[in-house]
């Protein structure tokens, strides 16, 4: 893995004649978590998909650059709200999917370590259908870590989970993805307040950087400043939408 770079997205996107987002500059600091918070349809997922090099249906004018000048899209790992596990493959096979798709020799030892780290060692040979939602998302996280990329793109990966499982997953992911350049796209102000080392609110009017709480992420769920930040972020979202 190359050291995690800074990442800068500069430009605007349009669908046909309609502007999706006006010219903006979003910088993701190297080795840190940036939470991009916003409502539906403001283009936050589009930004994530642009970085990943995926189809967006929108036309992007601008550039996406890594501070070390190397290619971006070949160094990203991607995790979505849907766990995207192959239903007929076992947990271990799902974790090894990337190597299989690239025709590489799978690193079985690393796979075992990651599965153990995600506390899935009792489920290695199971199919995704036999797992709970939280366990499935842990498999998806193990698969993401298996890719061992310096840039990690998370598209609302925890939003389908119940509150307790979501908090557990946030802790696990924050710890596991340390020192990588992470972009977390979310519509949950609480999640942004817990995990963001920098927090950016995106609305129709553009992006607004916000002050994250002082405590180290992942912050305690009952940390006062985190709760205040959550409130402030929600207020900002509501004002901008009005």
């Amino acid at each position: 893995m190359t050291p995690a770079p800074d990442l800068t997205v500069r430009g605007s996107a349009a669908i046909g004649d309609a502007l999706l987002f006006a010219p903006l500059t979003l910088t993701l600091a190297a080795g840190r978590w940036t939470c991009l918070l916003g409502g539906s349809g403001v283009g936050k997922t589009t930004i994530l998909r642009l970085i990943a090099g995926l189809d967006t249906g929108a036309e992007f004018t601008g550039q996406i650059r890594a501070s070390d000048g190397q290619s971006v899209r070949e160094r990203v790992a991607y995790m979505a709200q849907d766990d995207l596990l192959l239903p007929r493959a076992t947990v271990a096979q799902n974790v090894l999917l990337g190597a299989r798709l690239r025709g590489e020799k799978p690193d079985l030892r690393r796979c075992d370590q990651l599965i153990e780290r995600m506390r899935l060692q009792d489920h290695m040979a199971k199919k995704p259908g036999e797992l709970s939602g939280g366990q499935r998302q842990r498999v998806a996280l193990a698969r993401t870590l298996m890719e061992d990329r310096p840039i990690v793109l998370l598209d609302e990966p925890f939003s389908a989970l119940d509150a307790r499982t979501r908090a557990d997953m946030q802790d696990l992911a924050a710890e596991a993805l340390q020192d990588r350049t992470v972009l977390l796209v979310t519509h949950d102000p609480g999640e942004a307040a817990r995990l963001g080392q920098s927090i950016v609110v995106m609305t129709q009017n553009g992006i607004t950087p916000c002050q994250p709480p002082h405590a180290t992420a992942p912050r305690k769920v009952d940390d006062l400043e985190t709760l205040e930040t959550q409130g402030a972020l929600l207020r900002l979202l509501r004002e901008e939408a009005a």
Binding site: D82, L101, R102
Partner: peptide
């Protein structure tokens, strides 16, 4: 489409995508 997105970020060839994702 989510599976195809995932496979693309993993730099899957067209052939691998067909064999491991689309056919299953």
């Amino acid at each position: 489409p989510g599976y195809l997105d995932l496979a693309r970020t993993m730099q899957a060839s067209r052939r691998a995508m067909l064999w491991h994702i689309r056919i299953p």
